[in-house]
C-alpha cells in the first residue's frame, strides 16, 4: 500500500481518502484479527485489561535511534499522559501505536514488538488502515476538512461503507454528542467547519475520530493551541471519553497531565524513565530525572 493511501486512511488526516479503503477490507480485517488474537490479554495493575503493550521497542529514523528499550503497558479505559522535553520520543511512540510513522521514509520500529489487544501491530495480518480506525489520532492543531461540520464527521463512516443517510445522521449526532459539541452545532451542521472556534474545531476533530468507533484515541498536544476555557472543555471531554475509550495524550503541560491522566510516562532522550500512577509521579516520583524535569530543575 502506498504512503499516500496510508496517510489518507487516517480518519483525522488531512488528505482525501483513497477509495480502495472499503468496508469489506475493514470488516474482513476485524474477523481476521479476532481469529488471530490468540494471545491472552493480560490485566493491568488496576484490574483493567492491558490494551497496548510495548516490548523492548526500539525506533529509528534511518541510523538515528529515537526510542530505546521501551517497555510499557497501557490499560484500557484509562488516560495515559506522555510527558518529557522536546525530542524525547514521546510523540514518536504515540505515532507508533497506529503506525503513523510508516509514512516517514526510513522511520521504523527497529526492535521489539507493539501489541494491541493481543495482536502484534506489525504482523502481516494487520492492515494499517484498520489499525488507524481502531486507534484514531487527534493532533496539536485542529485540522477539519474544508467541508461542512456534518461532512467532517460523516466522512469516516462513509468511506467505511456506510451509505444510509439516516444511519450517517445518527452516527454524526452520536459522535458530536460524544465530543460535547452537539448542542453548539446542531443548528448549523451543514455550515463550513471553518466557521467554528479553535476549541470547537478541535472537538470536531475528536468527534470525527470517534465517529468510526475506535477503541483507542491518541492525542498529540490536543490543547496547546487553545485558550484556557477551550482547553478545559477538551480536558473535560477527555475525562468523559475514557468511559468508552483508551486515551494516550502527549502533553507539555504538566498541570494538564496531572488533571486528566491516570498514569504518566516520563520520557527522556528516547528512554522511558518512569511510568507510574499520575498522583505518584507528581507527589513523589521514583526517579530523580523525573523529579528534576517536573519541578523545573537543571538536570
Amino acid at each position: 500500500m502506498s504512503n499516500a493511501t496510508l496517510q489518507a486512511a487516517s480518519v483525522s488526516g488531512k488528505r482525501m481518502v483513497d477509495e480502495r479503503v472499503t468496508a469489506e477490507t475493514s470488516s474482513a480485517m476485524s474477523t481476521e484479527q479476532k481469529a488471530t488474537a490468540n494471545e491472552p490479554v493480560p490485566e493491568g495493575a488496576g484490574g483493567r485489561p492491558i490494551q497496548i503493550e510495548c516490548r523492548d521497542v526500539e525506533f529509528s529514523y534511518g541510523d538515528s535511534v529515537a526510542l530505546k528499550e521501551i517497555n510499557l503497558e497501557i490499560a484500557s479505559n484509562e488516560v495515559t499522559a506522555f510527558i518529557g522535553p522536546s525530542g524525547c520520543g514521546k510523540s514518536t511512540l504515540l505515532r507508533c501505536f497506529n503506525r503513523m510513522n510508516d509514512l516517514i521514509p526510513g522511520a521504523r520500529v527497529s526492535k521489539g514488538e507493539i501489541w494491541i489487544d493481543g495482536t502484534e501491530i506489525h504482523s502481516d495480518e494487520v492492515d494499517s488502515v484498520e489499525l488507524r480506525r481502531r486507534a484514531g489520532m487527534v493532533f496539536q492543531k485542529s485540522n477539519p476538512f474544508p467541508r461542512s461540520i456534518h461532512e467532517n464527521v460523516s466522512y469516516g463512516p462513509r468511506i467505511l461503507g456506510e451509505r444510509n443517510k439516516s444511519a450517517l445522521d445518527e452516527k454524526v449526532e452520536r459522535a458530536l454528542r460524544g465530543a460535547a459539541l452537539w448542542d453548539e452545532v446542531k443548528d448549523r451542521l451543514h455550515e463550513s467547519a471553518y466557521g467554528l472556534s479553535g476549541g470547537q474545531q478541535q472537538r470536531l476533530c475528536i468527534a470525527r475520530t470517534i465517529a468510526v468507533d475506535p477503541e483507542i484515541i491518541l492525542m498529540d498536544e490536543p490543547c496547546s493551541a487553545l485558550d484556557p476555557i477551550a482547553s478545559a472543555r477538551v480536558e473535560e471531554l477527555i475525562l468523559q471519553l475514557k468511559r468508552d475509550f483508551t486515551l494516550v495524550v502527549v502533553t507539555h503541560n504538566m498541570q494538564q497531565a496531572s488533571r486528566i491522566s491516570d498514569k504518566t510516562a516520563f520520557f527522556y532522550m528516547g528512554e522511558l524513565v518512569e511510568f507510574n500512577p499520575t498522583s505518584k509521579v507528581f507527589t513523589n516520583p521514583d526517579n530523580q530525572r523525573t523529579e528534576d524535569y517536573i519541578t523545573g530543575r537543571f538536570g
Binding site: 504538566m254 498541570q255 496531572s258 509521579v281 507528581f282 507527589t283 513523589n284 516520583p285 523525573t290 523529579e291 517536573i294 519541578t295 523545573g296
Partner: peptide, 10 residues
C-alpha cells in the same frame, strides 16, 4: 505562581 509538584509541593 509556580504550581509546585513533588518535593517542592511537599
Amino acid at each position: 505562581r509556580f504550581h509546585p509538584v513533588a518535593s517542592d509541593l511537599r
